[in-house]
Design a protein around this nucleic acid. Structure first.
Lengths: 235, 235
DNA sequence: AAGTGGTCTAGACCACCGT
DNA sequence: CGGTGGTCTAGACCACTTC
């Protein structure tokens, strides 16, 4: 990491998740944190801002920094990219690869991925099962220029861990579009619902730190099993 | 406003929306902004952070600050509290009050609003129409301790403008839960869809700067007309 | 009045991008 | 290499809460 404010934020996140501040529902003051971590006030405040943005705490001028109510687990977190494995911690998750191959970008994909028509893309279709029952179908397209290699092993465990930890990609921002439709026949079969039942859909366009689009994805969720949580801050 | 970094952020937001940087898709450098606004670098950077969080720009170290692709209009913005009127700018929006009265909190509402059972609440049920067609049903509960007065006029135009501009409430953070269900018969009639059709649902718990919960709401959307957009950043 | 967070400044040095 | 953003420090003053 090597960046102080992130290290401090990560440490405090662990402490919060450990319940270290549950008794008081309050964090140490900025002054105390400055002493504990031996950094300047600005650095403490930058760390704190991370925790606010991650949805853990809120600040009250003149009073202190307080824990937000714990979010119920088992919600899909729209504000993170950590994936199902990290969101649904109390569940067992299995992934089945339905399809994984290299394709060429058609006009529509090329436009959305901002690459040339005919560029090589990884196409990956997966079925995610939670506690042994079908939960979602995820279809992803990766620009092969940026993700030069992918295999079933990686796709079965965690593509994102591979991208971040192994390929060292710096994921920076994303557009997520959520809506809801009647499910088609094929997807219904896979998710074990009736054709025409509702389905929750998230479309995702993900960019690297330099602004390049590197992934498009569409996730189709079982409407009775999936709930999305989004924690937001204004200021 | 009286706060420099917010004023700068607001000014730059206007400039961006005006297309002032469309030619280059790039913002002035931090140095230039420091000179333009006559503030320190930290203040410029704080303003910039606002624009990043609002989803307008991304920063590339060593290179500059760039515009993100314009988000399609007519999406519901999950990351703002500005309400339909501000999200669907190209549409005409009408609001019909289905019900507005003071009720007493039952056990469940009291728990969720963190108030006493029996506390007075404003209950408000509205039908929102976009371009003359039913779009959503919004049911809200406001703690009357915090929102002491509400009438049909206010509920028909914008409750949030009233809360922020008139009551000077400082809204600080919110939990939003999104899911999708089969619509019930009553709602189906109002939204002009068939019972059992899909419907997109957002449940919202909104808190003030001091941490108090002051609103619960549930919005039920027409599944073919509503799309939610969420722009997120990692760093 | 004391405690605590919010804003702002000035300056230093580092890391990355492009030429 | 120069230009540009990223991190960090030290210190001042303000605004709000709590007692």
């Amino acid at each position: 990491m090597a960046v102080k404010y992130k290290e401090i934020a990560d440490q405090l996140e662990l402490d919060i998740r450990d319940g270290k501040f549950d008794r008081t529902k309050k964090l140490p003051t900025e002054d105390e944190l400055m002493k504990t971590f031996e950094v300047s006030r600005n650095t403490v405040r930058k760390a704190i801002t991370q925790l606010v943005n991650r949805g853990y705490i809120y600040q009250v001028q003149g009073s202190g920094m307080f824990l937000r109510d714990k979010s119920v687990t088992d919600y899909i977190n729209l504000g993170s990219l950590r994936g199902l494995t990290k969101d649904l911690t109390s569940k067992t998750i299995e992934t089945k690869i339905l399809n994984l191959r290299v394709i060429e970008a058609d006009e529509e994909k090329a436009a959305r991925l901002r690459c040339q028509k005919g560029s090589k893309l990884y196409f990956c279709k997966r079925l995610r099962e939670v506690d042994g029952e079908p939960f979602s179908i995820e279809v992803s397209y990766f620009n092969k220029e940026i993700v030069p290699y992918l295999n079933e092993d990686i796709a079965r465990t965690s593509i994102y861990s591979y991208l971040i930890d192994d390929l060292k990609l710096q994921i920076s921002f994303a557009d997520k579009i959520v809506n809801c439709e009647k499910i088609d026949e094929d997807s219904a079969k896979l998710l074990n619902v009736k054709p025409g039942d509702p389905t929750l859909i998230i479309e995702n366009t993900v960019c690297l730190a330099n602004g390049t689009v590197f992934e498009l994805s569409q996730s189709i969720f079982h409407y009775q099993k999936a709930k999305i949580l989004n924690r937001i801050n204004f200021k």
